[in-house]
Simulated assay, not measured.
Amino acid sequence: MNKQKIERAAKVTDKLWANFQKAQECLRTFNVNGFGVLADRALLRNDMLAAKKALEAALQELDSFLLWPSDEDYGD
């Protein structure tokens, strides 16, 4: 088992998960008025930009980490 490789990948996974959750949290609310029209464009835009920032951070982390464990690294 390659414990060091697995631990490094687990740390990256934690960062990915945190940014993923941040993006989900940012997109939780979508306010529509009684006429079926977006109620607060500025709020939605800010929430979408925050989600985009979190996803971009996650993608950067995902793309920059290249030492993902293989099946052999998990071993016995």
Results as ranks from 00 to 15, higher is better:
34 G>V: 00
19 N>S: 09
15 K>L: 15
34 G>N: 05
71 D>Q: 13
43 L>Y: 11
67 L>W: 11
53 K>D: 13
6 I>G: 01
31 N>R: 12
6 I>F: 01
47 D>Q: 13
66 L>D: 11
52 K>Y: 08
11 K>E: 15
65 F>N: 07
11 K>F: 10
73 D>G: 02
26 C>E: 15
49 L>N: 15
31 N>Q: 14
76 D>K: 06
40 D>G: 08
68 W>I: 01
46 N>R: 12
5 K>E: 10
23 A>M: 03
52 K>P: 01
6 I>E: 02
39 A>N: 12
71 D>C: 03
44 L>A: 07
55 L>T: 14
74 Y>G: 01
44 L>D: 07
38 L>M: 10
13 T>Q: 13
1 M>E: 06
35 F>W: 11
62 L>K: 11
12 V>M: 10
74 Y>Q: 04
16 L>N: 09
29 T>C: 06
8 R>S: 10
26 C>F: 07
7 E>L: 03
3 K>G: 08
42 A>W: 07
34 G>C: 00
42 A>S: 13
60 Q>E: 15
8 R>Q: 14
6 I>D: 02
46 N>K: 12
74 Y>R: 05
27 L>S: 09
15 K>E: 15
22 K>L: 08
15 K>A: 15
43 L>W: 05
15 K>V: 15
48 M>N: 13
38 L>Q: 11
28 R>I: 07
35 F>K: 12
58 A>R: 00
11 K>L: 12
73 D>W: 02
49 L>T: 13
33 N>R: 01
32 V>K: 06
5 K>R: 13
66 L>Y: 05
16 L>M: 13
29 T>E: 14
